[in-house]
């Protein structure tokens, strides 16, 4: 039988959302909190509710900075960043996204000092 979306997210992320005690520390630590429509601690709840469609459409997928503050500070070792990343992977693998970065955009974004690291990192995180 085809795996459902919740199972896929749990498998890709390796996260057990049941460990979460909803303390909110991950979201309180997140430097992108203001930019996110669904906050890091809410990702856990959405997975528990099987509402993966909402996560797939969330702009938070493109706002996480991989700073791992939420991972470091979660008292239950839930690793919410991995859920956000798994949801992003799911979108890219299953349907692609217009929000993703296209090489055509790059020339207009370049400046004199920009490190290669920024381009490779952005492509890894924002690829369509």
């Amino acid at each position: 039988m085809k795996k459902n979306q919740t199972e896929l997210i749990r498998e890709i992320s390796g996260v057990n959302p049941l460990k979460c005690m909803k303390c909110g520390k991950c979201s309180a630590s997140c430097p992108s909190y203001d930019e996110m429509d669904i906050k890091p601690h809410q990702f856990v709840s959405y997975v528990l509710r099987d509402d993966i469609e909402a996560l797939a459409n969330s702009k938070s997928l493109w706002k996480c900075l991989s700073c791992f503050a939420c991972v470091e500070r979660c008292p239950r070792n839930v690793e919410p960043a991995k859920l956000i990343d798994a949801a992003r992977q799911l979108v890219i693998r299953q349907r692609g996204t217009e929000e993703g970065l296209s090489p055509d955009e790059i020339p207009a974004l370049l400046d004199e000092d920009m490190p290669q690291q920024l381009l490779v990192s952005a492509f890894r995180r924002y690829r369509r």
Partner: peptide, 11 residues
Amino acid sequence: NECCGGYISLR
């Protein structure tokens, strides 16, 4: 030890 924004600065 707070984030500088990382790769978000591209766009």
